[in-house]
Design a protein around this nucleic acid. Structure first.
Lengths: 341, 341
DNA sequence: CCACGTCGCTAAACTGATTTAGCAGAGCAT
DNA sequence: ATGCTCTGCTAAATCAGTTTAGCGACGTGG
């Protein structure tokens, strides 16, 4: 690609020095006794030739590749993955690293394949990302090197980066309380499976805990809870309709994510109720749709970019081997107001 | 990572042969005169030692890295990028390649940086992707190697992969005609800038052309056209309201993308009109939201995965140096029906 | 009997960097 | 003059593969 690149030998020759000297100067080695003038000459030569080291050659010797593998379980394609990747990309660039992306699609064969590709290329570290916050099993083959889990935990208690779902739950509840809602707060999106099985979700349980604890501390308990098989709009729609059939109408609804909230909006629209006049809605994720809804949906944002960034930081700058929780900021829009009566 | 890996020398030693022999056998070189027994021994040894070649060492000699760079202009983070990446990932895996991802964010410095990182690593090829279908300038530095443009064209007439927006426009128009709509078809999302400047969008003009030509062939012309500064829900909403104020209400609306259509849905909901009873809606993109709307939105899908896949195919299997258009399949949902009267 | 070709394989060069070990010369003390 | 240290630098090994050039043994035809 491009005409021949200058090699270190070219630089050395032009500087009238040995490859050794050139290498040491360019790598800024301490404790070398090369003269200031030699430094000058090497830098000048490198500059003039547009020298860039050959990564393959370097890593053959040093076993460092300045490359991080980003392995995701399912679909690095969802919009969630996008933010994670982008954050990781930014942080990696700042540290002169590059990202190698693979996807296991939850398939054991693909996973093995991805791991081998990664090992063959001697990446400096692996970010193992899950698209839904959950616990997962990390293939032992990569445990030899450094691994950071992103949006996931593992039995091996590797360092991991997670969104602070519990804090978000608390903030959501507090927001409703602060707006004067008390005994008529309903919840949409309960799901026993998600709440109980950490291999499916860690978020469900954590959000619920944050909500419950905060309400309890204010002496409030939930008016009603709608269960949903999946966190999709259609189930939010159904749950909302069911909620509206109850004798006391809620003054506010917490949805476990924005897609459910979208469904709730649809049901409310059909019922001729207005948000937030008749009913406040608040949610989690900050899916793009939250901003598109009318009125805009207040929601605790999943800090994807921050998380991706943090993962690289922990991996490269070596952090504490513990879990690091990234706060989920509340996006305040127009869907929450004081109760009508 | 992991305990020491076996090298080719280890394999050769175990097989009782030279590195040369082992290398040739493992690479399946034709025309070598190594005995069948030698082949056996090498394969056996490699298997027993779990040998995997060191990519850095190999590429140092061969200048092949089995790595493709995926460079995107803006935010490899949008959901659009996701599909492109996933398709590319799949196709790359099938060809034993791996994807290196970088993002220029439309910033010249970042772009230079990305290009250097890529060149340093001697990737075998570059996929240069744009997130909105458009024309762009490819940095000359990578023109030395093989480049495929994804979702973009360039003045250099490099091979490129594009969605068939014109065909999609035609199909959308045909669908309405087939449902009996004729003189009351309106359009939302006209935008002079997008239509005229190929560096901003190629899709706008192509879709419009497909729609107009098809309608014209049936002797029909558009009832009304709503202009929108951006293809966002709020502008779809406004455009739809404006449309409803006209003396003759349209029987169908074509939206230039799903986000506009979402806005149109909102306006129609507020106006108490039902889809498709009072009015049909059809659109482009197949954003996830299209499936979530009630009723589901019929839309011509951007074939992201196919496009990503095709880009890798063109790059690696060497295709014709021309543009390859990927068809946009129509997702038929419930938003289109025959006009009321 | 010798020249020649084929077979089956190997030694060594090569890729482009890093790193270890060490050399020549100057300055200084003995 | 000799030995010693310090300075400023370099030769060569090394990483793990691929590739070129060629070697020894054997069979064959003249």
């Amino acid at each position: 690609m491009g005409r021949e690149r200058a090699t270190l030998a070219d630089v050395a020759r032009r500087a009238g020095l040995s490859k050794t000297a050139a290498s040491m100067v360019l790598n800024g080695r301490e404790g070398t006794r090369l003269s200031a003038e030699a430094h000058q000459r090497v830098f000048a030569a490198a500059e003039e030739l547009g020298y860039r080291p050959n990564v393959a050659a370097r890593s053959l010797r040093t076993r460092k590749t300045a490359t991080i593998a980003f392995v995701s379980d399912i679909v690095a394609t969802t919009r969630f993955a996008g933010g994670l990747i982008r954050g990781a990309l930014d942080a990696a660039r700042e540290r002169d690293h590059v990202l190698l992306i693979t996807e296991t699609q939850g398939d054991a064969t693909f996973e093995r394949y991805a791991i081998e590709a990664i090992l063959d290329r001697q990446v400096d570290g692996v970010i193992y990302a899950a698209m839904a916050t959950r616990r997962l099993a990390v293939p032992p083959a990569i445990l030899g090197g450094s691994v950071v889990l992103l949006n996931a935990t593992s039995p091996e208690s590797l360092p991991c980066v997670l969104p602070d779902d519990e804090g978000a739950g608390a903030m959501v509840a507090e927001t409703l309380l602060a707006n004067g809602h008390r005994d008529r707060i309903a919840l949409i999106g309960r799901n026993r499976q998600k709440e109980r099985d950490p291999e499916i979700s860690l978020a469900a349980d954590a959000r619920l805990r944050g909500i419950r604890d905060t309400l309890a501390a204010a002496g409030v308990s939930l008016l009603a809870e709608g269960f949903c098989p999946e966190w999709l709009p259609e189930h939010g729609y159904t749950a909302m309709r069911t909620l509206l059939e109850r004798p006391t109408r809620p003054s506010a609804v917490i949805c476990m994510n924005d897609r459910l909230a979208f469904g709730a909006y649809q049901a409310l629209g059909e019922a001729g109720l207005t948000i937030p006049g008749d009913l406040s809605v608040i949610s989690f994720d900050d899916d793009p749709i939250a901003a598109w809804l009318r009125p805009g949906l207040s929601t605790a944002a999943l800090p994807h970019e921050q998380m991706g960034r943090r993962a690289v930081e922990v991996l490269l700058d070596g952090g504490d081997a513990a879990a690091s929780f990234v706060p989920m900021p509340l996006r305040r829009r127009r869907s929450v107001a004081a109760p009508a009566d």
